[in-house]
Design a protein around this nucleic acid. Structure first.
Lengths: 230, 230
DNA sequence: CGCGAGCTTGACGTTGTTCAACTAGAGTGG
DNA sequence: CCACTCTAGTTGAACAACGTCAAGCTCGCG
């Protein structure tokens, strides 16, 4: 059983990365009184679509993936870098999570009681505005994904997700992903086998290099080209 | 050329339907000083993806459709009922519209200067919270659409959009849509021809009735069934 | 050394698009 | 009032894209 811990560091990280100093002492105290820190092991579920969303999730450390599920169908939305909040939609809507989140590596999170978050959002315009910023950023990302997934063929979708991982998550031309072929397939809405084939095509065309789970972008221009017309 | 008009009615509708009375006299005045009312004719463009978003759009009257576009590809996001705001993403992100919107019928809109909206959002927590509500609702809808479009086959997607129009827009079992086959195809990410075929299948199976542009839902349970397993 | 999970590869079937021909209805001009 | 045209919608056939299935491969791990 995880031990309850409550470090200042985690609260400060939230205040710095998410609310950008918009919280006054009183609000900070309220948040501090209504939070817990949790470590999730790689592979564990952080939240489950459809279950009660009693807390807003701040990811201090570790990569996560968010995904939609229904019956046996899974559509991965995206891989999320650290310093991110999850479950923001549930602050204002009926309180269930609208997607599931799983830990791609060991994750350190801080859970804030939703009621406290709501109270602060309703009285602190700066905080509400920061939440709005996050919600909107999320929405724009979702638009990108939606367009990519519905209007592009396999090669374009795979190129998009590699570029997305590069830009949004790893910020390096070479990165080692904690993603199986199945994960990549669920990100790009294709079958495992197709994911394998497309990656091989990219490798044959010297667009990327593959070494196990390490992806190196060799020709970014071409990758962007494929993203557009592939 | 449209004449500048500024009716109280339009401002009051915005305050009632969007901000739910969260605006005080001062904020209301600021908004009133920074808005224009515009009528768009059926078929006209209300905003264009990628262009400067200098205003938040409140639709007082008339159906609209929002869509993503790139080159010649179009993915329609949804048909939007009246009493809705559009362009909310651009309040906080770099100021361009992230989607285009077109009028499906004559539309009466009120445009609020984005700077004024921003000023109010940053000082009025209630207003910011209402914007967050809208942004989040939007996001949840987009998740639904994303899942539908990526994980379901043609019949399921068409069933979903008929149900969406029924629930979100017309709220009646029989409704006349201002949508061509092409529009329906763009909503469901399929070809015109496929849209025709699927609708015919539904009619043959007595799930819906079709008379020109009027759709009648005959067997809602079956439609939901198709949405799930089609 | 052998086992099993994840990955790869090829053959084949399904789904949905594209293309082309045809039809129906709405608007136009003689 | 009747040809004429134009557009939206329909239909069928060919084709491409992609998923499914099955077999084989690789590599980490007991």
């Amino acid at each position: 059983m995880a031990k309850p811990i409550n470090t200042d560091e985690c609260l400060e990280a939230f205040c710095g990365h998410v609310t950008h100093g918009e919280l006054n002492a009183e609000d900070k105290q309220l948040l501090n009184d209504n939070r817990v820190e949790v470590k999730y092991n790689k592979g564990e579920n952080i939240c489950k679509q459809g279950s009660f969303a009693n807390h807003l999730i701040y990811i201090k450390e570790g990569l996560t993936k968010s995904y939609l599920e229904e019956d046996d169908n899974v559509q991965t939305l995206c891989v999320n870098p650290a310093n991110n909040i999850l479950g923001i939609q549930s602050v204002t809507t009926e309180s269930v999570f609208h997607y599931s989140v799983a830990a791609l590596e060991d994750v350190y999170a801080c859970l804030f009681d939703m009621k406290a978050v709501k109270v602060i959002a309703k009285r602190n315009a700066g905080f509400a505005y920061e939440l709005l910023i996050h919600s909107n950023q999320n929405q724009v990302l979702t638009f990108d994904r939606l367009f990519s997934l519905t209007m592009k063929q396999l090669h374009g979708r795979m190129a998009d997700i590699i570029l997305c991982l590069h830009k949004r998550v790893y910020q390096s031309d070479t990165f080692t992903v904690n993603l199986s072929r199945k994960d990549l397939a669920e990100l790009t809405a294709m079958s495992n086998e197709s994911a394998t084939r497309i990656l091989k095509d990219f490798k044959d065309d010297k667009i990327i290099d593959l070494d196990g789970k390490t992806i190196s972008i060799l020709d970014k221009d071409k990758l962007i080209q494929v993203s557009k017309f592939g």
